[in-house]
């Protein structure tokens, strides 16, 4: 299955982004409270800009640039983050 690429202005999950894309976080969901809080503490809050910087050789996890540093995160966790491509 070919991966759908989301264009500027479209909304999707962070896991749908491809390397080199930039997006704004629009919300966090999911019912793992500890995970959610950890993401918030690491700076993944509404309105923040993220940039998909590196992807691990086997395709997962992903390294994103956020708030001036680099954060590694699994695709399955990125599914809990809503973003808007910019």
């Amino acid at each position: 299955m070919k991966k759908r690429i989301y264009n500027k202005g479209e909304e999707c999950h962070m896991s749908d982004l491809i390397k080199g894309q930039k997006a704004l976080v629009t919300g966090l969901h999911g019912d793992n409270l500890a995970l959610r809080r950890r993401l918030l503490d690491m700076g993944v809050t509404t309105g923040v800009e993220v940039f998909i910087k590196k992807i691990a050789p086997m395709g997962d996890p992903v390294d994103i640039e956020i708030r001036g540093y680099e954060l590694c995160i699994r695709k399955s966790d990125m599914r809990n983050i809503d973003v808007k491509v910019i």
Binding site: P61, Y69, E70, R74
Partner: peptide, 10 residues
Amino acid sequence: DSSAFISELP
């Protein structure tokens, strides 16, 4: 099956 991996890449 829940799991997470969140870490800084220094």
